[in-house]
Design a protein around this nucleic acid. Structure first.
Lengths: 239, 239
DNA sequence: GGTTACCTTACGAATACCTTAATTTTCGTG
DNA sequence: CACGAAAATTAAGGTATTCGTAAGGTAACC
C-alpha cells in the first residue's frame, strides 16, 4: 500500500494543533487522516478506522495519554508517537514502557512529525501489520474482550477475575453473538445436564456476567434480556 | 532473535559518550555493542558486523553525519538514530531526508536511547533474515529457557536439573504459551492416558515446575492457575 | 388485580487447589 | 539379582473460592 494511503489518527484536545497537523499531512498527500479530541473518541476511532500511525497527546481531558496507550494496544499494534509538553525523563520512559514507540516535545515543527511518520511508514512496505491477526477464539466487544484460549476476560483493558462457570457461560454467548439463547439451551450447553429443574442458577450467573461487563448491570446493553425467549449478547450495543 | 542479541553500533567521536552508552547497554544485557569514532571506522564496522541499530553522532571529525548516513544506507537498512547538539529544524529534517529514522538531542539521558532502541527492536520480532533460522524448540521466557533439543531447563543462566516427567510437562506448556490447559488435557497429552482418575499427580508436577521457575512458587507469575479451567504458561507475566 | 418472568443479594456447603510427606516404582550400577 | 537413589504417584490435611439455593422484590403481561 502506498504510504499516503496509510491511515493516520491524530489525538489532541487542542483544535489548533489538530488542524495544523491535518493541513500539513493533507499537503503531503495523506488523505486518510482522522482526529479525536478525547480518549474515548480515540478508542472509538481506533476500532472504527484501524489506523497505521497514531499521534497521541499525553494530556487529554478524560484520560492520561499513557493509560490510553495501554487501552489502544488492545486493538492495534500501530505506531504510536506521543506529543508531550513535559520533558521529564520519567514521563518519557513511562511512555515507552506503556507501549509507545516515539515522542516529540511541544512546541514542535509539524514537518518533523511528518518526517518521522514517513520514516516509519516507508519501512512498513505493503504488509499491513497494523491489523490484528484474526483469531476466532478471541471475541472483541465494545469495552471488553473474551479470550477463550487464555481463559481471560479483559474489561476496559484490565484482566478481570471470572469464576469458571461464569466464564464458560460468557464464552458460550460469545460464540453465539446476536443470537437469543433460552435458559434451557444455556443450561444444557454450559452445565451439561439435559433437564433444568430450576432456572435461577442461570439467572444468577447472567447477573454475575453483567456485573463484570456492563456499565450498569441493572440496565444491560451487551447481555440483554429477550423476555419470554432468553438472552443474547449484542455485538454493537444500541445507543 | 532475542532483543539482547541484536547488534548495536555506536558512532561518536567523544569517548565519554561511547563508554557511557556502552555501559548502560551492557547493563541492559546487550552483548553485541560495537563502537566507532570516525565515519570511516563506522563504514567498516557496518560492513563487518551488520548491526541492527545504529546510534550516529552528526558531528564527526572526518564526515558529516548526514553524508555518512547516506553511505551507510548502501550497506544496511538498520535503524539509524542521530545524536545531535544542533536544534535547527532544517538539520533535523535533513537527517530524516538522508535516511535517518530518529534523532535525540544532546545532552541526552542514555536510558532514553535504550528505551527507543527497545521500542524499535521489540517490533523486529524474530524475522531477521540475516540471523540463523529461529528455533521453535527453544522457548524463551523471562528468567528461564526451555530447550527441547538439548532436553534442558535453564533458569537465570544456570542449567537446572529436571526429572523427565516434569520437563515434558513444561515442554507441553511451552508449546502452548498463553493458552489455558485443563488437567485432563495435560494428563492426556503428557502421560498418554485417555482417562485421568485423579488430578493430584498433575498438581504435584505443576508444583515441581513452579519450584524451579518461579520467584515464589506459592505466588506463581509464569505458570498460573486459571481456577476451574486449568493452568497456563504466561509469556510476559503481568506486573 | 393476579400471575408470570425475571432480578438481586446473601449464605453455606461443596469444590478446586495447594502443599508436604509417605509410599511405590523405576532406573542405574555393582 | 540386589541395592540404593531418584522419580513418580498417592495420601492427607489444609485453605480459599465458587456455585447453587433461598428468599424477597419488581416489572410485564393477561
Amino acid at each position: 500500500m502506498r504510504m499516503e494511503n496509510r491511515k493516520i489518527l491524530l489525538v489532541d484536545d487542542e483544535q489548533a494543533i489538530l488542524q495544523m497537523l491535518k493541513m500539513v499531512l493533507t499537503k503531503e498527500k495523506f488523505m486518510n487522516v482522522y482526529t479525536a479530541e478525547t480518549g474515548e473518541e480515540a478508542l472509538h476511532a481506533v476500532q472504527k478506522y484501524k489506523p497505521d500511525f497514531i499521534v497521541l497527546d499525553v494530556m487529554l481531558p478524560d484520560l492520561n495519554g499513557f493509560e490510553l496507550c495501554t487501552k489502544i494496544r488492545m486493538y492495534t499494534d500501530a505506531h504510536i508517537l506521543f506529543l508531550t509538553a513535559r520533558v521529564s525523563d520519567l514521563d518519557i520512559l513511562t511512555g515507552f514502557e506503556k507501549g509507545g514507540d516515539d515522542y516529540v516535545t511541544k512546541p514542535f515543527n509539524p514537518l518533523e512529525i511528518v518526517a518521522r511518520m514517513k520514516a516509519h511508514l516507508k519501512r512498513k512496505g505493503t504488509s499491513d501489520a497494523a491489523s490484528p491477526i484474526p483469531n476466532d477464539k478471541v471475541h472483541h466487544f465494545g469495552g471488553f474482550i473474551v479470550n477463550e484460549e487464555a481463559g481471560e476476560l479483559i474489561v476496559d483493558g484490565v484482566v478481570t477475575p471470572c469464576p469458571a462457570q461464569v466464564f464458560l457461560l460468557l464464552v458460550h454467548f460469545s460464540q453465539n453473538v446476536n443470537r437469543v439463547l433460552s435458559k434451557e439451551q444455556l443450561f444444557t450447553a454450559v452445565w451439561g445436564y439435559d433437564y433444568m429443574a430450576d432456572d435461577n442458577t442461570v439467572m444468577v450467573h447472567i447477573r454475575r456476567i453483567r456485573e463484570r461487563i456492563e456499565p450498569n448491570p441493572s440496565k444491560p446493553v451487551h447481555l440483554v434480556t429477550v423476555r419470554g425467549l432468553g438472552y443474547k449478547l449484542v455485538k454493537e450495543p444500541a445507543r
